[in-house]
Amino acid sequence: MNIKTVSAAVVLTFSGAVSAASRDYISIVGSSTVYPFSTVVAETFGKTTGFKTPKIESTGSGGGFKLFCAGVGIEHPDITNASRAIKSSEVESCAKNGVTEIVEVKIGYDGIVVANAKQAEQLALSRKDIFMALAKDVPDPNGGEKLVANPYKSWQEVNSTLPATKIEVLGPPPTSGTRDAFVELAMEGGCQAFDFIKAMKKTDGRMYQGVCHTIREDGAFIEAGENDNLIVQKLEANPAALGIFGFSFLDQNSDKVQGAKIDGIEPTFEAIADGTYPISRPLFFYVKRAHLGKVPGIEAFLAEFTSEKAWGEEGYLVDKGMIPMPPAERERFAANVKMLYSLEK
């Protein structure tokens, strides 16, 4: 009798799994930077329509593409968020698994700020200063086209106009999309101020990447984990330190921390929106066309995300710290979404 009951229970469990083979909610994965925006749209969508609230996992951009490209079918996610554009290698791996028609939607911008506590004075850094202060190897301070291990201990040594405080920067770990974008936009931007390194890009791409993208490991750069709230708290406690995080955290904590000017531009909403602030990046999400019609509500979710009340200049995503695209760009992407244009291969 016991064996029968147990086997019946097992059969029931698995028949339950089979009945779940039709999914009635949208499944979204991807970037932790887009997560706060995607979740707000999902929540509004769930409240204002008859559809269930989409499920959103924060897996990082790369992890999101991996899950997204794993195949077509309801066990795979419908949408992936990304804080960078899809790479050609990812398009290929998608195609290999039968995921061929992908709709790309750009939703807005995010700025990365270098901030310190309000008690300290506001800094004005250039991207070159950031590279010199944080790179593992820098050009020899004595001149010549030689790279030496980063000798700088204080900001003043990097640039005589900066204060004589110790270089101490709290930033995200390598798994974070914020770190990727910071390295790409700030460090590489600063690295190109040196002609011989810039020339390296053509002759020795790998070496160029290594020089520009490697952050020093001698304690001046402190990996503070993925929790940006923690960085804000640590900055408050230590006015000499700088922190690197997304603009929405600066926006929420403007009474505690201030953003440094980068290349003379303050990290403000307007400067990021019009593209003059140098360390900003576009945010995207990607939709699997094959799932339209299979999972209910995807079209309605796309319509909600691309509506003016969500991503417009006065939309609710802006309240959450996202920086909207200019009107012409919004129009173009909204039209793309309506027509469901797929990515060109």
């Binding site: 994965v29 995607s38 979740t39 769930g46 609230t53 499920k55 959103i56 996992e57 924060s58």
Partner: peptide
């Protein structure tokens, strides 16, 4: 296994997210 996710609806069974 994907349980670190934003889920608004209160689950009604062991198969719901």
């Amino acid at each position: 296994i994907g349980m670190v996710a934003f889920i608004v609806d209160i689950p009604g069974g062991a198969l719901d997210p």
